[in-house]
Simulated assay, not measured.
Amino acid sequence: MIELKSPTEIDRMHTTGRFVADVLTELGDLADVGVNLLDLEHHARDKISQRGAKSCYWDYAPSFGEGPFRNVICLSVNDAVLHGLPHDYALRDGDVLSMDFAVDIDGWVADSARSVIVGTPATEDLRLVRATETALESAIAAAQPGNRLGDISATIATVAAENGYPVNTEFGGHGLGRTMHEAPNVANDGRAGRGLVLRPGLTIALEPWFARTTDRIITDPDGWTLRAADGSRTAHSEHTVSITEDGPRVLTRRPERPNSL
């Protein structure tokens, strides 16, 4: 069942979204050569504790993971793209780091992800990250009242095709609000003009992610981390968005910085 949120409830989700955005901004600033993934995990834990928030990941045990997940953020490096289990790894020059973060504040959830390049970026990695960001912005632009869910999915797939990236449809966006995963599912490929009509009050997480040369994924022995099956580099971008009478409202928007990732 899809639960439409009131303007007041969306404002509360926006409060959570601002916190999520601020933490992801801080983590992006901290991610540098030699920094351990566990340091980033502990920074996120500290911020959650200070805010009195609740991690949506801690003790999460869905069918697609070997639960329970005992971390507060997903950190995925290079060919890893989703559900990365933080572990003892020092970031290296040129690594692509994807960070996915979701919390609950006063009963309302927000979810966002970003990919950053540590140190010196390779041109192809920069292009890959930018493609997910472009796809996300295109998806947001398509999230207009009266449009359909397929319009969002189709625009993500179009950006992928324009950049020569295949699209995996096993994992994509989703509804959220009182919990992290609610109906509907939002695939990263689909047909325009098809699917659910977008109505004001709908809140969804849009999350295009691409691997450079494959649409297949494999799961690490840790039971969580998903990697490109051919070992190619990956990237992931995500925002929580509400549909309003006036168009899409991004609830996890980070402050813009010139030439930043």
Rank of each mutant, 00 (worst) to 15 (best):
P248N: 07
P62E: 06
F210S: 02
E124Q: 09
P248A: 07
H83S: 01
T225Y: 00
G28D: 00
D22E: 15
T219C: 12
D79R: 13
D215P: 12
I140D: 04
V33M: 04
T179R: 14
S232V: 05
R257T: 14
T219G: 08
F64E: 10
N71I: 00
L30R: 15
D104H: 08
T240I: 10
G52Y: 05
D46S: 14
P166S: 05
N36M: 06
C56V: 02
R233Q: 07
G84A: 03
A61W: 12
V96F: 04
D46T: 13
I2K: 01
Q50C: 05
P166H: 03
T213R: 01
T123W: 04
H236S: 07
V20C: 12
G172A: 11
L24F: 08
R199A: 13
I156R: 01
I243K: 07
P221L: 14
H87W: 09
L37Q: 15
D222F: 08
P166N: 10
I10K: 09
I204S: 05
L251K: 09
I152C: 04
H87K: 10
A131S: 10
A102K: 08
R199Q: 15
S98C: 10
V81E: 01
G231L: 12
F210I: 02
R191C: 08
E137C: 02
E3W: 06
W58K: 07
V23H: 00
G173E: 01
G146N: 07
H174D: 05
A122M: 13
T169L: 03
V241A: 14
G94A: 13
V241R: 00
A110P: 11
D246W: 07
V23D: 11
W58N: 03
R212M: 04
L75S: 13
V109K: 10
E3S: 11
